[in-house]
Design a protein around this nucleic acid. Structure first.
Lengths: 219, 219
DNA sequence: GTAAACAATATTGGCTACTATTTTATCATA
DNA sequence: TATGATAAAATAGTAGCCAATATTGTTTAC
């Protein structure tokens, strides 16, 4: 991701741009976020920068060290495991609720979204694919009818994982992800609660299979 | 809760004091939090107040309405139901984890805490009882070994406090709550996962039986 | 008398500038 | 080389201004 132009910068808030750059690892895990740098990069004033930093700190996307500043979170293996454990709890529960309440039309619509994604893999841009992926999950979890649950899931998801390895990098992983979605829809259609549970679990925890130690570059 | 002195005010941040006053319902659900009032009440300057407000808004303890300000959340019946649904999801999951990992000593310690609470019901102050209750839940959920999960549970718990009815008012409800705890420990001892699951569910959702409509005082 | 239009008042929100405090880097000295 | 004093850099706290917006109060027209 390269430098943004002024028009774009004006539309989105500094916090959102900064968050995007953190998740895309322009700013790397553990890196210090100097206020002056942020100021320049987004053509913002000091006040905006400080508000943005404290906002992202509230979202636990960056850490605040008194008198030293803000740095991108650098989750330990343990913290990463805890995050995914909680996400698994919430998302499997959301799947359970979705299964209880979904109609045949819902299942059909989700199935269509899987097909659309499949078709888009080779043609669409990375951003569009992320958009489609988000849309699928939003639709899927909205079936449960619990808005708070969706919010919680999204917030944990947004904590994102700076420093995560793999995932969304290769076309193969995109396809694998979509196959998970296809299977989730199938489980929904069959009303197979245990199967859906396991599929969601695997969808979230597949990365563990390829996990490798990450160098800890705390200063 | 009355006006705090300067020394106390200096120690705790404005956000924490404000949160305490919201949870104790000094500021009532739906009430507007005028920056000038907060400023006076906690001997803080405008900047501190604004930081505190945005921090509490990030925790969803207050709502932010652009150009109008911040107000204490006032959950609708639906939102409250969603809140308890998510709490049930997280806390039953935490119970499951606790059962997987707890030792005999842990069970014994929890059992002792139940007895201590029982003994304290007639003698201790309300604040002390709340303290003991918190301690039990903290110990119980800590067994699962997932700090993030505990944090999430606590945050949702705080969000449920403003505007709730009943609960913790009568001695009878205190005793009933502690009986639930006793049963939770028993289930833990017996390694009865389904039983623990149901007990936690009932512990969280008993209030529904007595629920009554609440006047909506949004301005 | 009622309702719409308008004026006033109050409140929030964005911003600038300045000061203080803390940390980090530099350099001289033993 | 180690150490301590000093300078530089960065963050944190504070005061205050002004513009945008919302709320309240008043007047006017019908």
């Amino acid at each position: 991701m390269t430098r943004k132009n002024a028009a774009e910068a004006a539309e989105n808030g500094v916090a959102q741009q900064l968050q995007a750059d953190i998740l895309s690892e322009y700013f790397r895990p553990g890196e210090w976020l100097k206020q002056a740098d942020i100021e320049n990069r987004y053509n913002a004033n000091r006040f905006e920068v400080r508000m943005a930093l404290s906002a992202l700190a509230a979202k636990h996307l960056i850490d605040h060290v008194p008198n030293r500043g803000y740095r991108v979170i650098n989750p330990s293996d343990r913290e990463r495991a805890e995050l995914y454990e909680v996400r698994t709890i919430l998302e499997t529960a959301a799947g359970r609720l979705a299964m209880q309440k979904c109609t045949d039309d819902d299942v059909a619509e989700l199935g269509q979204m899987v097909e659309d994604f499949e078709a888009a893999i080779n043609t669409a841009s990375r951003a569009e694919l992320i958009e489609l992926n988000m849309a699928f999950h939003n639709k899927f979890y909205s079936l449960g009818g619990n808005d708070l649950l969706i919010t919680q899931i999204r917030e944990l998801r947004d904590r994102g994982l700076p420093g995560r390895e793999g995932g969304w990098e290769t076309v193969a992983s995109l396809r694998a992800s979509n196959e998970d979605h296809r299977q989730m829809v199938e489980m929904l259609r069959r009303k197979d609660a245990d199967g859906l549970n396991y599929t969601i679990y695997r969808h979230l925890n597949r990365w563990r299979e390829f996990s490798k130690p990450v160098t800890d570059e705390n200063t």
